[in-house]
């Protein structure tokens, strides 16, 4: 895990972000930051306020309160020069279905040309970009004739056409097949490692979050309930390792502390008839579900303190399963 960006320049800095629709408080004091070149994944159940947060950061939505700084400006007041430095890939686009793939990229690229600066030539050449997202052979096809996954890759290409310093990706791999997903993950790594693009993305795919994220934020009930790497988050939820085995024809499961080695050693020493031994580290999914469940149960006033205090193990020791 890399921790780049933690101490470096921050491209996004949010303090006490509030959003209220009528009497509903959608965001209740969100604090978050993203460092330059960092990949931050925003997780959370539907309705947690992920889209609202991202839309405020993108400058598409006015906030009710709090301080927001994106690339040195307040998105609510930032101008076109600021807009030229960010890339946006929203959840679903159906626009421009009559256009041909390549001419659409060229059309959008043209708006970025005046903002080209040394070291950051804009726009990204259309052919290189098509190559990069694997759409070269579709360059002269109608956008409307692309498959769901291809369309999504075109959306990502359009998000990159201005060679952004900061990229917002809202569920970018929805509808991708496994191969396309892996290629996309490689591209995200390249963007962040080689080109120093900062990325804030949302996803429902927790293994994707684990693969991509330098840091994971969990948003629930309008607050950030967790902030850290996948490992750090896992360590904060008790019952990190599950040990499963079969004995006398029965399945057993044990939730061990952070490291299950000691338990396994003594188990094997005292029970020579153990078979089908399996040791499972807690997945991000387990961590996520535990954290979200807890946050919604308790509606804590101080999420950090709440996380530290609650033991919430999944299983009692040596609980027998069918």
């Amino acid at each position: 895990m890399r921790f780049r960006g933690a101490l470096e320049e921050r491209v996004i800095q949010v303090e006490g972000l509030e959003m209220t629709y009528g009497t509903t408080r959608v965001l209740q004091g969100v604090d978050l930051h993203v460092g330059r070149g960092e990949v931050v994944v925003l997780l959370g159940p539907n309705g947690a306020g992920k889209s609202t947060t991202i839309e405020i950061l993108e400058g598409f939505r006015m906030r009710s309160g709090g301080r927001v700084d994106v690339l040195g400006s307040d998105p609510a007041q930032a101008g076109e020069a600021w807009r030229a430095r960010i890339g946006v890939v929203l959840q679903s686009w159906r626009d421009h279905s009559r256009w041909k793939v390549r001419s659409l990229l060229e059309q959008f690229g043209a708006y970025y040309a005046p903002y080209s600066v040394p070291g950051q030539p804009r726009p990204y050449p259309a052919d290189e970009l098509l190559e990069r997202v694997g759409l070269t052979s579709h360059a002269h096809e109608r956008v409307g004739s692309l498959s769901g996954g291809q369309r999504r890759r075109l959306d990502v290409a359009i998000g990159l056409v201005g060679r952004p310093e900061l990229l917002f990706l809202d569920e970018p791999t929805a509808g991708f097949d496994p191969a396309a997903r892996r290629e996309f993950h490689e591209m995200v790594h390249d963007l962040s490692d080689v080109e120093d693009v900062s990325i804030l993305l949302t996803t429902h795919d927790l293994s994707e979050a684990e693969k991509l994220a330098d840091r994971i934020l969990i948003l629930d009930g309008g607050r950030i309930v967790a902030d850290g790497s996948a490992d750090e988050l896992a360590r904060r939820v008790a019952g990190v390792t599950e040990v499963l085995w079969r004995q006398d024809g029965q399945r057993h499961v044990h939730s061990a502390e952070a490291d299950g080695t000691e338990f396994v050693r003594s188990l094997l020493a005292t029970h020579p008839d153990v078979t089908e031994l399996e040791v499972r580290r807690q997945t991000l999914e387990d961590t996520y579900l535990a954290m979200v469940a807890r946050a919604s149960d308790a509606a804590p006033l101080d999420p950090a303190a709440e996380l530290a205090a609650d033991p919430a193990a999944h299983h009692a020791d040596s609980e027998a399963l069918r």
Binding site: P114, E128, E183
Partner: peptide
């Protein structure tokens, strides 16, 4: 999605503070 050599420098350039000339025309 093949990888293209990244032409950008790792350090970010200063943000253009004012709109460049002729932006609207372009």
């Amino acid at each position: 999605m093949s990888t293209v050599p990244a032409p950008t420098s790792p350090t970010s350039p200063p943000a253009p503070s004012a709109a460049p000339r002729g932006v609207r025309t372009r």
